[in-house]
Design a protein around this nucleic acid. Structure first.
Lengths: 236, 236
DNA sequence: CAGTGGTCTAGACCACGAT
DNA sequence: TCGTGGTCTAGACCACTGA
């Protein structure tokens, strides 16, 4: 008597695909309440756990809204989420098939300028380690790295010359962080950046500012200024 | 006789925290092989499933490398991953506490220029719907939207005037996609962009190019040119 | 081949939160 | 209050892949 008895979907990926198909085919429309996990498990012929895994995965991608008791709804306005992978600069350059060169421009202990002190949440005029370096791809300037390191958090950094390894790479290996912030923007190249990157002052450059922290303490802040034409790619 | 009997970690978040703590405290160093799931389950006093959930979660964040038979290792060079949320422009502006205004600049069926045809993977000279619009925050230009829509995939778009709803919002609601690509870059504002954004030609502007597809078919490509000073923020 | 992670199951209890 | 998703469990089988 049953109207249908489709082949069982026995793994969570198959369930996920079917769910995506239904959303996509508008069988479940934006805003619609979809059946609960137990019912879907019955329909699909699998355990509720499996349905849960599939729905959780779809929800993480933003297409479903799930709330206890309220049930699961197709998202009304799916928020586009894209994951940006930011490899170590050397790897990024080598992965593009270029030769990587690193050149340290300067390394000094400096009294923190106000803006930097505020960003790193240290007292004004604290002594910080400042690095400026250039990363090159096939001998062409690729990015300028301008970095402040908080020696109170990573004292070992003061022992490192940074002549043969970049702050970027050294810190990623030696200073695990718990959280941080990234900001992307476009800016006009300053005179010094232009000189280092081999472009004209005022040229539009892609800028990445990053702050990484270990619990409450700021480890380092960095400003990466990429040569004109740089693109960051992501998949949806 | 047992050397230790720490309180059980009974949920996967607690296990995850302990794992992160050990990585962070260098108890498990980069490159180290960590105990297998069964052993950890024993140690933590929970089911292997729970350990699996925790380790999978940490691995997704990039701090662990997991391979069958080879076991789980602390990542040698953790790749930084950050998730970028790209809301509907109207929501983005309203979320910042500004009044949102939308202004359609032009809407025409046009023969696809070569570069656009290549991007959307349609025949050269195909008829495409082209939109150009301005999104304003508190009456200040915020972003220029320049969009090409493939009517073969979303025929309904031809019925829409786009005078009161942006392509950005209409498509997100009416044209579910399966995948896509995003590219971020910095560019110099063109003469027309500068006029529309109220800045000077050549000013550095942040640009987001996006292509969204439904299976094999390209739905739309869009170029968003943000007013100077725009920043995109992400958390780590 | 054998050890590891990947997954499924059936059942259970719990936390949240809409009503 | 009580239905829903969130999670844990113990056990099982499987897929991959290093040795």
């Amino acid at each position: 008597m049953s109207v249908e008895s489709p082949p069982s979907l026995r793994n969570w990926q198959a369930v996920q695909e079917e769910v995506l198909r239904r959303i996509h085919a508008r069988i479940w429309k934006p805003g619609d309440l979809i059946p609960n996990e137990a019912d879907l498990a019955l329909e699909f012929g699998c355990a509720r756990t499996t349905v849960n895994r599939a729905l959780r995965s779809v929800a993480e991608s933003g297409l479903l809204d799930r709330r206890r008791k309220a049930g699961t709804r197709v998202a009304l306005q799916p928020v586009v989420r894209a994951t940006l992978s930011i490899p170590i600069l050397r790897h990024e350059i080598e992965a593009r098939g270029h030769d990587y060169t690193y050149r340290l421009v300067s390394r000094q202990m400096l009294s923190a300028p106000d803006t930097v002190a505020a960003t790193l949440r240290v007292a004004a005029n604290s002594e910080l380690l400042h690095l400026r370096a250039l990363h090159l791809a096939d001998s062409c300037p690729y990015v300028v790295e301008d970095r402040w390191i908080n020696p109170a958090v990573v004292p070992d950094a003061c022992e490192e010359t940074f002549e043969h390894i970049s702050g970027n790479e050294w810190l990623l290996i030696n200073a695990p962080y718990t959280h941080g912030e990234i900001a992307l923007s476009a800016d006009a190249a300053s005179r010094s950046e232009a000189r280092e990157l081999g472009c004209a002052a005022g040229d539009a450059v892609f800028v990445l500012d990053r702050l990484t922290c270990d619990h409450a303490a700021a480890i380092t802040s960095v400003r990466l200024v990429f040569a004109p034409g740089h693109r960051v790619q992501m998949d949806l």
